[in-house]
Design a protein around this nucleic acid. Structure first.
Lengths: 339, 339
DNA sequence: GTGAAAGCGCTAACAT
DNA sequence: ATGTTAGCGCTTTCAC
């Protein structure tokens, strides 16, 4: 059994109260005593029992993160980056990160409810916001703080951080159109995902700007995975007049399409342009390297985490939401003039 | 404030004890009462406060996982897979997963100590075992259960799961040598990592078997990342007589080397063979697709998690450690006869 | 400046 | 079959 505050008190023959206060740094403890307590506690390897503090303080110092999975497993490097961001920031702020993958048995709702009702975590970080998002509404109703990556429709002051997908894709469209492309395909994500609509709006804006008619067949849907991109790209190649450029809603989708093209002997970066969204390392190291709209995922993770911690500490956020501009990174997969 | 057991008891005008026992499914509670309690608790949305149970039961139902980072961030898909595996299994067994990235400020030891001493978690999952591993020794001494992916030197019954890296690489060596390769390079990981030595032993065994002399210059060291593989490969290409095949200690390293070769205009899969270890999706979708020694990372994650839960529930493991054979997957990056 | 005591929400030994 | 009570380890009034 680990050493408790009682053990420390016993050893010094003082009360637990004093030990507690010395450690908490209260001013009404004699300097002598304080030093002694701190030293002894340290020597004895005393660390407050987490469960006990929890119960007393009614807070867990824990942030919850539930991986949204689109059925099946996720291997999106996006999440590694994001997780590293929120985790680093959280631990610097003395918070721990509780994660779960809400994939297999139980529906996602249960995972949120369990943690919320049992006060397992103090707050949540939400990603992949949906057009009608159950989660933000539920957590608001329960009075549990959260911060989301992606906008939510609540006007109650829960902060969020967004990335301007529309503007990002618009920049990309201008780049592609400038190189001579007019048949540009878009491999999207399920429509309930907010960012899908956001990015698609940029696609549409790009077409409009250049006076290129919208062709529904050039829009297909995948599930944000490499596999998904690979398969969704197939009908595009089978079209009587296939696209000369393909935009993937994320890097993984684009990399899947890239692979699909190469498997058909199409030279990406010469005869076909492909671009993604995210700016992951996988795209950077693809061959040809992938043009992408980069968002600072790690930094966003840190910020989201920081905003949440502030909210948990009772600091009111000055802004409720703010939007970051992503950066177009042009690489070999699109960097050529269309013949 | 969420509803407590007291609220439920009040509502039914019975004691908290009865509520507690009804919910716990004790047999000494009247069927009527049981039904009533269950229904009411459900209606009221009662979920036991986690901190209170923790304190009382002296267990957290939480598994700790501390990402080992080789300085800087990790984006290894290996971890996404592994995390999904341990997370899925844990949540099916009613355990939560607490993670941290022990990278930035504090040394890794602190993270383990904090969680161990504060009884923040019931047990740990360890990966990337080292030749002299502080962690296994420390946790043993503290009496905290753990299960590791990779062997540890303790004979105290803490189970582990390993993958036979030596045998895996040996199979790969036979494959390469069979295709005519004799100058085979190996891009390894830091030597303190157990699996580096394990896999290198397979390399050596392959050479020995074929009577090929060992050339120290063909062994270089990287940090398990794509970047690392990219840079570590450079001196190999600058050799007067460069290797005709390169083995990466993991897929990411191999993919970095692959990219490095392509940047120099070398045709991988035609003039140069490259292979990795892990069997990640990234390798599968590389171009050319990457020959690899696949280990079932997700499944291993599940097993490790399951072993830990068993240990936490007091079940004695029948085996203390067991070793899985990885599978050689031959793909385009090596599947050609050397000219 | 320090200690005694109450209580966070829950479970379990011990009555009845 | 149900209730009373103690206590998990901690923080925080309140008293001295």
């Amino acid at each position: 059994m680990p050493v408790t505050i009682k053990d420390v008190a016993h050893r010094l023959d003082i009360s637990v109260t004093t030990v507690s206060r010395a450690i908490a740094g209260y001013s009404d403890v004699a300097e002598n005593t304080r030093q002694l307590v701190l030293q002894t506690a340290n020597e004895m390897g005393y660390v407050p029992r987490h469960a006990a503090r929890n119960l007393r303080l009614q807070r867990t110092n824990t942030i919850g993160f539930i991986f949204p999975t689109l059925g099946g497993r996720f291997t999106d490097p996006f999440f590694s980056e994001f997780l590293a961001g929120i985790g680093d920031e959280a631990s610097e702020q003395d918070y721990d990160l509780l994660v779960t993958v809400a994939s297999q048995g139980e529906p996602e709702e249960h995972a949120y409810q369990r943690w919320a009702r049992s006060r397992r975590v103090d707050g949540f970080i939400l990603v992949r916001m949906r057009v009608m998002d159950w989660r933000s509404r539920y957590l608001s109703a329960e009075g549990i703080p959260f911060v989301s990556f992606g906008p939510h429709q609540l006007a109650n002051g829960q902060p969020w951080i967004g990335v301007d997908g529309q503007e990002g894709v618009l920049k990309l469209m201008r780049h592609l159109i400038g190189l001579g492309h007019r048949r540009i395909a878009y491999i999207g994500a399920p429509r309930y995902l907010y960012f899908n609509g956001d990015r698609l709006a940029g696609y549409q804006a790009g077409l409009d700007e250049a006076g290129i008619p919208f062709i529904p067949e050039l829009i297909v849907e995948a599930d944000l995975t490499r596999q998904g991109g690979y398969h969704a790209a197939q009908p595009l190649f089978s079209m009587p007049e296939p696209p000369t450029a393909i935009i993937g809603v994320n890097d993984l989708t684009a990399l899947g399409a890239l692979r699909a093209a190469q498997d058909r002997g199409i030279k990406v970066g010469v005869d076909l342009a492909i671009a993604g969204f995210d700016g992951t390392e996988a795209g950077e190291h693809a061959h040809p390297s992938l043009t992408t709209i980069a968002q600072p995922v790690y930094a966003i993770g840190r910020q989201v985490s920081q905003l949440l911690v502030k909210a948990l500490n009772g600091e009111k956020a000055e802004l409720s939401g703010f939007i970051i501009q992503p950066e177009l990174i042009i690489r070999a997969s699109t960097d050529f003039l269309l013949k």
